[in-house]
């Protein structure tokens, strides 16, 4: 049994089936990239794994650390070690970022200051969460919150969208700390699934495998850099021939 095992997952949103039988495995300490055109179901997959309301699992299962989590609430899943970075995080008037970080922090109090400095958010700690934040500031705030949580499974929904190049590198610095990228793969304990449209994040975070999702199905998997190149060159429509069966089998065998 792998760290995260998704089997025949069907998910509906407002009565409409979006995911139509997803199978996906992720090993401990691994990072997976998910590619897919708009509307293919990438964000729905993130919502279903994290347990956000509105994503109804109609068939199949999600197993995390050996436990079927598909009936657990969003906060129970979070406490089990799942952390989500929202594509569009909401603003919460009245709740200061620092107050939330202090609530989440399970490390030393100095870590808040250290990580806020790393993400250039020191001046934002006393501000209400995401109120008046730019797109890039919101994404950095997401990473800062996740650095307090230190989840075992990181779900990143387009972490670089709306972020300038300079800040992508700052965000990646934070993510690399969570994912222990300075450690050899065998020692890493945290895994990640990253949705990306632009692929920019791949320049900063090394991923182990890429999946392509279209129309609610996983089309196939392969080496992240190669798949990204092919999609960029030929688009998603020709991607059905871009998968490396051997690569995927080796990946699964290594889990």
């Amino acid at each position: 049994m792998s760290f995260l095992e998704i089997t025949d997952l069907h998910v509906s949103v407002e009565g409409k089936e979006i995911l139509k039988g997803i199978d996906l495995s992720l090993g401990i300490g691994r990072t997976a990239i998910i590619f897919g055109p708009n509307g293919s179901g990438k964000s729905t997959l993130m919502g279903a794994i994290s347990g956000l309301p509105g994503y109804e699992i109609t068939q199949g299962s999600i197993t995390f650390k050996g436990q079927d989590i598909s009936r657990l609430s969003v906060d129970e899943r979070s406490r089990l070690g799942i952390g989500l970075s929202f594509q569009y995080p909401p603003a919460i008037k009245g709740v200061r970022l620092l107050t939330l970080l202090e609530t989440l922090n399970r490390q030393t109090p100095e870590k808040i200051t250290e990580y806020a400095q790393l993400l250039n958010l020191t001046a934002y700690l006393d501000r209400d969460i995401n109120v008046g934040f730019s797109g890039g500031e919101r994404k950095r705030s997401e990473v800062l919150q996740l650095m307090m949580q230190m989840p075992d499974l990181l779900l990143l929904d387009e972490p670089e969208s709306g972020v300038d190049i300079e800040n992508i590198s700052v965000i990646a610095d934070g993510l690399r700390i969570i994912l222990e990228k300075d450690q050899p793969i065998s020692r890493r304990k945290r895994s990640a699934i990253i949705i990306t449209h632009t692929g920019f994040i791949l320049d900063y975070i090394k991923a182990d495998i890429a999946f392509v999702i279209m129309n609610g199905h996983v089309l196939g998997c392969g080496a992240p850099g190669e798949i990204f190149e092919e999609i960029r060159r030929d688009g998603y429509s020709k991607c059905s021939s871009c998968f490396a069966e051997k690569f995927c089998e080796e990946y699964k065998g290594a889990l």
């Binding site: 994290s50 906060d75 952390g83 909401p90 919460i92 939330l100």
Partner: peptide
């Protein structure tokens, strides 16, 4: 949406509500 957001961080619904009301 705000409640769910805070709950993805591991807060229970009661804790998330209290944080929002206190902040309000």
């Amino acid at each position: 949406e705000e409640l769910s957001y805070l709950m993805t961080r591991g807060l229970t619904e009661e804790q998330a509500r209290a944080l929002i009301i206190r902040g309000f």
